Simulated scan of single mutants.
Amino acid sequence: MIQLIRRLIFAWKYKRAVRTATRLAELTGMRYLVIYLNGSLKVVPKQTIRELVRRHRFRKGVTVDDIERRALFITK
């Protein structure tokens, strides 16, 4: 029962994050990713991820492609 409630909450948060990402993508024209980071869903523009990888904010050897592959949703 607890697992069901957790799944429902995650599904609700995921839908909300996807909706936010698509709205922002339509508004700005940039590509947005929904990623699971630090225990929660984050909506992040791809440009920011490139910047963070360049500044070595992720583990050594991590590329933008690796993050894109692990993303839960990517806007067109």
Rank of each mutant, 00 (worst) to 15 (best):
Val53Asp: 00
Val53Thr: 05
Gly61Glu: 04
Asp65Gly: 10
Val34His: 07
Val34Tyr: 05
Arg57Val: 10
Gly39Thr: 03
Phe58Asp: 00
Arg69Asp: 15
Val43His: 12
Val43Pro: 03
Lys46Trp: 11
Asp65Tyr: 01
Thr48Asp: 06
Ile49His: 06
Glu68Leu: 14
Arg54Ile: 00
Ile67Gly: 08
Asp66Gly: 05
Glu68Tyr: 07
Arg54Trp: 03
Arg59Asn: 11
Val44Gly: 06
Thr63Trp: 04
Lys42Thr: 08
Val34Pro: 12
Tyr36Ala: 11
Val62Lys: 11
Phe58Met: 02
Ile67His: 05
Lys42Phe: 15
His56Ala: 12
Lys42Ala: 13
Ile49Gln: 06
Gly39Asn: 02
Ser40Pro: 00
Arg57Cys: 13
Leu52Gly: 00
Val64His: 08
His56Cys: 02
Leu52His: 11
Leu37Gln: 03
Val44Lys: 07
Val44Gln: 05
Ile49Ser: 06
Gly39Pro: 09
Asn38Ala: 10
Arg55Tyr: 07
Gly61Ser: 06
Leu41Ile: 03
Glu68Pro: 11
Arg69Tyr: 11
Gly39Leu: 05
Val62Glu: 03
Arg69His: 12
Arg57Leu: 06
Lys60Met: 03
Gly39Ile: 06
Arg54Asn: 12
Gly39His: 02
Arg69Asn: 09
Leu41Lys: 01
Arg69Met: 09
Leu52Ala: 01
Leu37Tyr: 15
Thr63Cys: 03
Tyr36Thr: 00
Pro45Asp: 09
Thr48Asn: 14
Asp66Lys: 02
Phe58Tyr: 15
Arg55Ser: 08
Thr63Leu: 04
Ile49Leu: 14
Arg69Gln: 14
Leu41Ser: 07
Leu52Thr: 00
Lys42Val: 12
Val34Trp: 12
Arg54Pro: 01
Leu37Asp: 09
Thr48Val: 13
Ile49Gly: 10
Val53Leu: 10
Thr48Glu: 14
Pro45Trp: 07
Leu37Gly: 00
Glu68Val: 11
Arg59Tyr: 15
Ser40Gln: 07
Ile35Cys: 13
Val34Asn: 06
Val34Ala: 08
Arg57Ser: 04
Val44Glu: 13
Gln47Thr: 09
Pro45Met: 01
Arg57His: 15
Arg69Thr: 08
Ile67Cys: 03
Phe58Gly: 01
Lys46Asp: 14
Leu52Ser: 01
Arg50Met: 09
Asp65Val: 07
Ile67Asp: 07
Val44Tyr: 08
